[in-house]
Design a protein around this nucleic acid. Structure first.
Length: 522
DNA sequence: CTGCGTCGCATAAATATGGA
DNA sequence: TCCATATTTATGCGACGCAG
């Protein structure tokens, strides 16, 4: 934690970074990024913002740095054009032609100058003291690619695609490399696919996903310790259990709260929930608890439809995998039966899991027709992606649409064209009140606070004879009405009629999309 | 009859494994 | 290192039963 830095140190830092960039080397823009990273990291946190308003890396420093670097024995000055022709590698005839989509080569102009570290130095830095005879050409290429993407890691899929190596071979190579302790793997689940993020060991500790994995492992170990303690003494460790539960519950609450507010990038972590469920069950008598109670204990927003869906899915998954069994038990107050869950085998996250702790602006990622698990989501700068429940994805899309609203067609497009039926169903549910309260809502005529209960607003718009729905977040809908000079007086009617009644409250307004359409609220 | 929730089967995409 | 195949994890959707 030095608050100062020296020019020599800066130069050495850049030499290393260039070496990490591999055979393609680094261009000037990247070099300046390295230097800025170095300088900022060594400034005291408070001083670098207002203290020096100007760029700490001014033209003079840039010039100096460049001249010093060119002089370094390990560094060669070359151009992008030269790099694309020569293979520049003492080891093997690697088919550079195969990787024409090399981003580094394409990104810079033909004559762009690049600094490249020599092979021996790079090898020492990236492969450490490992015997190079054990590292074959393909292995080296993979290792180098991982090194190049050291900050955010690279997925197995990307390695397979960019290096033109079979997916299975990539798997083997990664396995080998992790046996040398050069590479760390982190499992990601994204939409319907799961993949591994590969990180160079030296940089793994900087990655949020890897940190999350370590936290999970630590939690697992603590849970095991607690269990062992519990076996020995049953009464004295209650406090520990409570603390543990509180900690877990708190973490989960943060997740749900943040998720539902849509103000964060924290991704819901299904493994965390699964583990939370079994951890709680492990501490109660008979390892049995009503599912409803379990949900309330685990989640701060247990009444939200999002939570209910997620939770139901989680329970179902755990039952399917043999961790839980579901039983019918009479209620304590004697009014019928309710479902309870009994723990059979505690769930333990095996391959680690992922959550993001990014700090950038909240944004939806990975949803779209071409969404993939690789660059699209990682390049968005917020680290990791997690699989989302469809309703949450829908909700966020509607939210993102804001005052303009969104039609089913647009929604379907944004979500990568899921099944028509399933989409409609989720929309039905979301535009109604929370599912558990439906009974109450139907039977009551009192005013319903739609802002609190309904998640999204469904409005119908007419264009000639055509009729279609448009969905809004409640706040956005209010805003829309205000903009059109209308009072949101239809709120009650809207909530009351959304389920069964046929009465319609119609308002003639201008549609934001077409500017000439009547919009009616149903 | 209708709406809703649950169950089970089919499918997809990626990883993991073992033999050549 | 490649090939064929198993496994894992998640989604899509129809069938079925229940309650109003």
């Amino acid at each position: 934690m030095h608050t100062g830095w020296s020019l020599d140190d800066l130069v050495q830092h850049c030499v290393k970074e260039i070496a990490w960039d591999g055979a393609q080397g680094s261009d000037k823009a990247r070099l300046w990024a390295f230097a800025r990273g170095y300088i900022n990291a060594r400034h005291a946190p408070g001083t670098n913002k207002d203290g020096d308003e100007g760029d700490p890396l001014d033209a003079r420093l840039q010039d100096y740095l460049w001249r010093m670097l060119v002089k370094q024995p390990q560094i060669t000055l070359t151009t992008a054009a030269a790099l694309s022709q020569t293979t520049h590698k003492p080891t093997a005839p690697i088919k550079k032609t195969a990787s024409t989509n090399n981003p580094a080569a394409l990104a810079c102009a033909e004559g762009e100058e690049r600094l490249v570290a020599d092979f021996a130095y790079r090898r020492q830095l990236i492969a450490g003291g490992n015997d190079m005879s054990a590292i074959t050409d393909s292995t080296w290429r993979v290792l180098e690619a991982i090194g190049r993407r050291r900050e955010r890691g690279i997925t197995q899929v990307e390695l397979h695609q960019t290096l033109n190596i079979g997916a299975q071979s990539v798997f083997h190579i990664i396995k080998r490399l992790s046996s040398f302790n050069l590479v760390k793997k982190v499992n990601l689940v994204f939409q319907r696919n799961s993949t591994n993020l590969c990180l160079h060991t030296n940089y793994a500790a900087l990655n949020d996903s890897y940190k999350a994995q370590l936290i999970m492992i630590k939690q697992k170990q603590q849970a095991e310790q607690n269990k062992r303690k519990r076996k020995r003494t049953t009464d004295d460790e209650e406090d520990d259990d409570d603390d543990d539960d509180d900690e877990m519950a708190e973490q989960l609450n943060t997740f749900t709260a943040a998720l539902l507010k849509g103000q964060t990038q924290e991704r819901w972590q299904s493994n965390l929930v699964r583990q939370g469920v079994t951890d709680i069950l492990a501490t109660v008598p008979d390892r049995t608890m009503p599912i409803r109670e379990l949900r309330q204990k685990l989640l701060a927003h247990a009444g939200h439809s999002d939570c209910i869906k997620w939770f139901r899915r989680t329970i179902r998954y755990l039952i399917h995998k043999g961790h839980l069994e579901s039983l019918e038990m009479p209620r304590a107050d004697g009014t019928g039966v309710e479902k309870v869950a009994r723990l059979l085998v505690p769930f333990v996250a095996s391959t680690g899991s992922v959550m993001s702790s990014g700090t950038g602006g909240a944004q939806m990622i990975g949803i779209g027709p071409g969404a993939r698990v690789d660059t699209a989501m990682l390049d968005s700068g917020d680290g990791m992606a997690m699989q989302h429940a469809p309703d949450i994805q829908i909700y966020w899309c509607v939210r993102k649409a804001g005052i303009r609203g969104i039609t089913v067609q647009e929604l379907a497009h944004q979500l990568g064209h899921p099944g028509h039926k399933i989409l409609q169903r989720h929309l039905d549910v979301l535009s109604e009140a929370a599912t558990t309260n439906r009974q109450i809502l139907r039977n009551t005529s009192m005013a319903i606070d739609a802002d609190k209960v309904a998640r999204i607003v469904r409005a119908v718009e007419f264009a000639g004879r055509m009729r279609r729905y448009r969905y809004f977040v409640p706040e956005a809908y209010e805003q829309f009405l205000k903009q059109e000079g209308l009072s949101p007086a239809s709120k009650q009617a809207k909530a009351a009629t959304s389920s069964a009644s046929t009465t319609k409250h119609t308002v003639a307004v201008r549609c934001m999309a077409c500017m000439c359409i009547n919009l009616a609220c149903v």
